[in-house]
């Protein structure tokens, strides 16, 4: 009984790790992109020519999720 409770399935732990990797990085980049995105949209509303710059600035923090995703892929 005790043994069963104490030891978790390694596959489950992996899955949790992968989930955390994607979930937390997603959360982090979301927080980072919040204000940048708002600012980019604001600038674009007045000057459409700023689309390119706005897009770049907005997606810069998004690399974190890709790292999370890669880590998750490597774990699972």
């Amino acid at each position: 009984m005790v043994g069963e409770e104490a030891i978790m399935d390694p596959a489950g732990l992996k899955a949790i790790g992968a989930g955390l990797a994607v979930g937390l990085t997603g959360l982090a980049s979301g927080i980072a992109e919040k204000d940048i995105g708002a600012a980019a949209i604001g600038a674009m509303a007045e000057n459409e020519g700023l689309f390119g710059k706005g897009l770049i600035l907005t997606v810069i923090p998004e690399t974190i999720v890709i790292f999370g995703l890669v880590v998750a892929l490597l774990i699972s």
């Binding site: 690399t63 890709i66 790292f67 995703l69 890669v70 892929l73």
Partner: peptide, 16 residues
Amino acid sequence: LSNSLSYTRLIAVGLS
């Protein structure tokens, strides 16, 4: 490092 790893999206996004 982070720039080169950023290209892993070429596989990661498709996989997801």
